[in-house]
Computed example of a mutant assay.
Amino acid sequence: MIDHLGITVSDFDASKAFYDKAMAPLGAALLYMVPEEYTGGAKVGGYGRDRPVFWLSTGKDRPRDHQHVAFTARSRAEVDAFHAAALAAGGKDNGGPGLRPHYHPNYYGAFVFDPDGNNVEAVCHDPE
C-alpha cells in the first residue's frame, strides 16, 4: 500500500553522502533528482532499486517536522476519489489529480496536506 515516502533533511549533501553508503549494501542507490524548477529550489532526490521509493528533501518551504507519504492507487479514478475524499475530510489541497511527467510519463498523482501539515499523496503508475 505504501508507494513511497520522504523525509526532510537539514543538509542534503551530508544526508546524500550518508544514504549513498548506507543503501549500497541493500542494492539501492540515488536514482533520480527532481529538477529544482519543480521544487521551488529545494533539493529532492529519490533512492531505490528499480524506482525511487525513499526520498530526501530540503528547502525553505519544507518544515523538518512535516513528512511525505504516498499510497499506491490501483487506478487514476482512485487517485481522483482519494483527493476528493481527503478534501471533504478537511485536508488542504497541495496539488490536484493529474499527470506529473517530470517524474515519469505515467505518473498520475494528487497531493493533500493532512490536519498536521503532512504531505499525503495517492499515485497511480499505470498508463490509464
Rank of each mutant, 00 (worst) to 15 (best):
E37I: 06
V112T: 08
S57F: 01
V79A: 12
G96K: 15
F111N: 14
P101S: 14
D65N: 14
G96D: 00
G98V: 04
H66G: 04
F71R: 15
V69H: 04
F111L: 13
S75F: 13
G98N: 09
A86K: 12
Q67V: 12
V79H: 02
V34I: 14
W55L: 07
L87T: 10
A77D: 11
L56D: 04
F71Y: 15
T39N: 06
A84N: 11
F111G: 06
Y108C: 10
H66L: 08
A88R: 15
A28I: 07
W55N: 05
A81N: 14
D116G: 14
Y107C: 09
A88Y: 04
P105R: 12
V79S: 13
P105T: 10
R62D: 03
R51T: 13
E37P: 02
P52H: 13
K43Q: 12
E36Y: 01
P105W: 13
P105L: 09
P52A: 15
G48N: 06
A88V: 06
P35E: 03
D61W: 00
Y47K: 11
T39Q: 06
Y47A: 12
D116A: 15
F71A: 10
D80Y: 04
H66M: 08
H66F: 03
K92V: 09
T72F: 05
R51F: 11
P115I: 03
K60C: 01
P25V: 05
H66D: 02
P35W: 06
M33F: 09
P52I: 03
A85S: 13
S57A: 13
F82Y: 14
L31T: 09
N106K: 01
G48A: 13
S75W: 09
A77Y: 00
P35V: 02
H104V: 06
T72K: 15
R64N: 02
G59N: 07
H83R: 13
R49F: 09
A85L: 11
T58H: 12
G46C: 06
A70M: 02
E37G: 02
Y38G: 02
Y32Q: 15
G59I: 00
G40D: 05
K92N: 09
D80V: 14
R64T: 09
G109P: 03
Y32P: 03
G27P: 09
G96M: 01
A70C: 15
G91E: 01
D65L: 05
Q67R: 09
Y38H: 14
Y107N: 11
N106W: 13
L56S: 03
H68W: 02
R100T: 09
P63Q: 06
G27N: 09
G98T: 07
D93E: 10
A70Y: 04
E78A: 15
Y38W: 08
E78I: 05
N94T: 02
D50F: 07
N94A: 13
D61A: 12
G91Q: 03
Y103T: 08
A28W: 14
L30Y: 01
G95E: 00
L26T: 05
